[in-house]
Amino acid sequence: MKVTQHVHQLPVTTPTLFPATTTNIYVVTEGNSAVLIDAGYEHEGAHQTVVEYLEKIGSPNVEAILLTHYHRDHSPGAKFFTAHFDCPVYAHPAEAAFIEGEIAPVRVEHTLLDGDVVQVGRLNLHVLHAPGHTHGCLNFWLPEDEVLFTADNIVGAGTTWIGPPDGDLRAYLHTLQRLKSYPARWIAPGHGEMIADVQEKIDFFIGRRLEREEQIYSLVAERPRTVDELVQAVYRDTVHPSVIWVAERTIQGHLLKLAGDGRVRKADGNRYEVV
């Protein structure tokens, strides 16, 4: 559906993580020009949703597919769309090889760096290198509509997981602070509905990470603990076994930042202790 003058949000079915059940593909249009931001999973129904919607709004010329990151709920659909619309795939160079693994034999034809601008008709879509969820994650800023496209750095429901090998909590917090500096009226998240309370939402995500960090530090200060022990203490029975790996990597990500800050260190038996 159309969410601002130049932005359309299309939630499509993907194998993503609860509470999300869909991934947002965005169509940015101006005149007869358009780009897609993200491509979802390789799912025929999702492909058809996008194709039919573009026909409904006048079949603008899709000039590029801009992928925020390589995860399988965001990138594999580009294999279909690049052929259907006869357009190239763009991504950050740190994501290109991983994306090409998902969309082979299609290649990433053009890489995007922080500060680049993608022209969509007369619109300037500004490229932000926004590491945190992944090392080469891209976000976008559309000043004409005052929209920040945040991919999985900020989502509409729940929070996003940040942990190794893809994620970096220190980089993530820096990215969130940077996103606060834009005079956005809307956040267009990778999952969930458009977000109007921009500053409040970003502050919530920052506060949630810092709160979790202090919780983990306090648990380690009580006594040295392993990652598994911390997962049990922090999440207990709140995480389904199918996604326990997300909890483990989240704990690992916090421990890496705490160690980098000189607050904890790895002791004997894979346990972490305060410094």
Rank of each mutant, 00 (worst) to 15 (best):
V3L: 11
Q5G: 14
Q5I: 05
V7N: 03
H8G: 13
Q9R: 13
V12A: 04
T13Q: 12
P15Q: 08
T16C: 09
P19C: 03
T21W: 01
N24G: 00
N32G: 07
S33E: 15
V35E: 12
I37N: 00
A39S: 15
E42H: 14
H47A: 02
T49P: 01
K56M: 10
S59I: 05
E63A: 05
I65T: 05
I65Y: 11
L67A: 00
H69K: 06
K79H: 06
P93L: 04
P93A: 03
F98C: 07
I103Y: 07
T111V: 11
L112N: 12
V117K: 12
Q119R: 15
L123G: 14
N124G: 06
H129L: 08
H133I: 10
T134V: 12
C137W: 04
C137F: 02
P143L: 11
V147S: 09
V147F: 02
L148Q: 05
L148I: 09
G156V: 01
I162T: 13
G163E: 05
G163D: 08
D166S: 09
A171I: 07
L179H: 07
S181D: 13
A184C: 03
M194N: 02
D197R: 11
Q199K: 03
E200G: 08
I202T: 02
D203N: 14
L210Y: 10
R212F: 08
L219R: 08
E222P: 09
P224K: 12
R225P: 09
V227K: 09
L230C: 04
Q232Y: 07
Y235I: 04
D237S: 11
H240M: 01
P241F: 03
V243R: 12
W245I: 02
Q252K: 15
G260W: 06
G262H: 12
G269N: 14
Y272Q: 04
V274F: 09
V275H: 14
